[in-house]
Design a protein around this nucleic acid. Structure first.
Length: 131
RNA sequence: AGCGAAGGCUAUCCUAUCGCCCGCCAAUACAAAGGCGGGAGGAAAGUCCGGGCAGCUCGAGCCACCAUGCUUCCUAACAGGAAGGCGGAGUGAAGGUAACGACACGCCGACAGCCAGCGCCACAGAAAAGAAACCGCCUAAGGGCAAGGGUGAAAACGCGGGGUAAGAGCCCACGACGCGACCCGGCGACGGGCGCGAUGGCAAGCCUCAUGGGCUGAAAGACCAUGUAUACCGGCAUAUAAGGGCAGGCUCGCCCAAGCCGGGGGGUAGGUUGAUUGAGACCGUCGGUGACGACGGCCCUAGAUUGAUGAUAGGACACGACAGAACCCGGCUUAUCGGCCACCGCUAUUU
RNA sequence: GGAGAAAUGGCAGAGUGGUCGAUUGCGGCGGUCUUGAAAACCGUUGACCUGCGAGGGUCCGGGGGUUCGAAUCCCUCUUUCUCCG
């Protein structure tokens, strides 16, 4: 599967969908805190360099509209900045699964979220490189 | 035009780039890339009602439990809607010195039954419901009375007259209330008479009456593939009457065992289906006071499954509210920046 | 997506039509005891609005209704919590 031909896309295969994997991720994955996100990640077998899921808890945001908004913004930030992470992983031949949980109590504007996502991805690259 | 009262429709738009889900086309071993088309709401919400659909082996009767509650109609059904009745407050208003007010208009109402039974009615008050008697009134002194007083949310129907020792629906007229195998109008609620009765309130107290209702809930259920317990199925055998099961109980009715033989595939994880064509939308004609119905034409309008509508840049103006489908419909309720349309009442101006 | 429960002074928690703005415990404040403190014992203590004060008014999550009268009964909304893979 060649993802470099559409580097800014975010197709289905890059979503983290397997229930089994998600449960395993929360039991065994590494934790990384980078406000306003909490991240769980682990190395897995697979074809795709990086499978991601984005979570906004119902407890923090009552309305489905708000949850959708945050999820979409977060996904957009990830989609536009993921390239470096994927290249690093491909060079090392690693495959990882990641869950990004939005833990802040308030909405974050897009520009700020974009910068935070930049930092998060840098941190992820650093952590995976350490292995 | 303003104010007031109520109802219906609508829910920012355009361009470019990046990106998501579905369908079709073409292509291919498969996938990806490519082209074209489609992609949230009036409330998608709350889950407050009613259905469809599915499972519980299937069903009947009685009881229990739950719900509804003026009438008729609409509807698949409803606690929804329409029309009507009755009641309420309001506006206008002939008339009237005024109080008031025939009549008209729209608005609001959980609006069956305390003449089936039981229960409750604090404090105050003599007394709070088969009447009794504190002050009081009358008396032939045994007793009789409930008009007047004050209390209270409420005091045994109101008011006037007769009547009496004093009084009282005790009697009478008018009126309020209740009842009716009665008469007239209406399908009916009810209205108008006639006759009879003798009365507090509360059923969002228990309850009575009438009507309806099994329970569970798409996390229901069906199928495929991988391949081990033993579910399940069929046949034979045992047993024939106890026991167990069948949707809260009972009765009826129905079903059932351990053994042998054969078939068969559970859990777990994954996929497909259920799943979007439907009590469907729009247009027209006809029927109906209306909700709505009938007929004809025409259209296909989200379908995800860790869960698709977003981001950036620029522009327009009325500067954009509440808010996001998850099996599907019909309602109700709640949230909502605005815009448009029709209707009623009053006030003022112009023609 | 579905099912259920609860909301009462600062906290916990009774009260299920009437003398209830509300019992009790914890807490707070004051006192006794002590060199001082703790414990114990005694007393006191809801919030908001208004008033110089005495006092008055409102409040049992919000709103509406039934009733003479509602924390309690009914409807509706809000919030919180629990359960079902």
């Amino acid at each position: 599967m060649n993802t470099s031909s559409h580097s800014f896309g975010f197709p289905k295969c890059e979503h983290l969908c397997s229930r089994k994997l998600i449960e395993k991720l929360y039991n065994e994955g590494h934790r990384l805190r980078m406000f306003p996100f909490n991240v769980q990640w682990m190395i897995v077998e697979g074809d795709v360099p990086c499978q991601v899921m984005i979570v906004v808890p119902k407890r923090k945001f009552k309305h489905a509209v708000d949850r959708n908004r945050i999820r979409r913004l977060t996904r957009e930030c990830y989609r536009l900045q993921k390239l470096q992470l994927i290249e690093t992983l491909q060079n090392k031949g690693l495959h990882i699964a990641v869950s990004i949980v939005y833990v802040h109590n308030e909405m974050t504007p897009y520009e700020q979220l974009f910068v935070r996502m930049r930092r998060l991805i840098d941190a992820l690259i650093k952590e995976t490189a350490a292995l």
